[in-house]
Amino acid sequence: MDFQRILFDVSDHIATITINRPERLNATDDLTRTELGQAWARVREDSDIRVAIITGAGDRAFSAGQDIRATAQSGIRNKVPGSRLHHNVWKPVICALNGMVVGGGLHQVADADLIIAAEHAELIDTHLMVGNVFALEPTVLLRRMPLSMVMQLALMTKDGRISAQRGYEIGLINEVVPADRLQERAREIALAIAKLSPATVQASIKGMWASLDVGLHAAHDVAYRYVLQHQMTHPDYLEGMKAFAEKREPQWVVD
Rank of each mutant, 00 (worst) to 15 (best):
I68Y: 09
Q251W: 00
R44Q: 08
N132G: 09
G240T: 10
A27N: 10
G99H: 07
L212Q: 14
A245L: 11
D12Y: 08
L172N: 00
A112G: 05
V10G: 06
M151C: 12
K158P: 00
L106G: 10
V177G: 06
A210G: 00
A118N: 04
H86P: 00
R248C: 03
R42T: 10
Y168D: 04
W40D: 01
S163V: 01
R144F: 02
V177R: 06
E35V: 01
R185F: 06
M1I: 02
L85F: 03
Q231P: 00
G167C: 02
R144D: 03
I76S: 08
M1P: 09
I189D: 01
K206L: 04
Q183E: 13
R144I: 00
G131T: 11
F62S: 04
K242M: 11
H234R: 11
F3C: 08
M232F: 12
M1S: 06
A210V: 01
W40C: 01
Q38I: 06
I170G: 03
A179M: 12
M241V: 11
G99C: 08
A245D: 12
L85M: 11
R50S: 04
N20P: 02
Q4S: 14
T200R: 15
T16Y: 05
M151L: 15
V177C: 07
N98T: 13
P92E: 02
D30H: 07
K91L: 03
I49M: 02
L153R: 07
V140H: 10
A245R: 14
A194H: 04
K91S: 03
A199T: 13
S211K: 09
A243F: 05
V101T: 12
H13E: 11
S63C: 02
A112Y: 02
N26D: 12
R144T: 05
T200H: 14
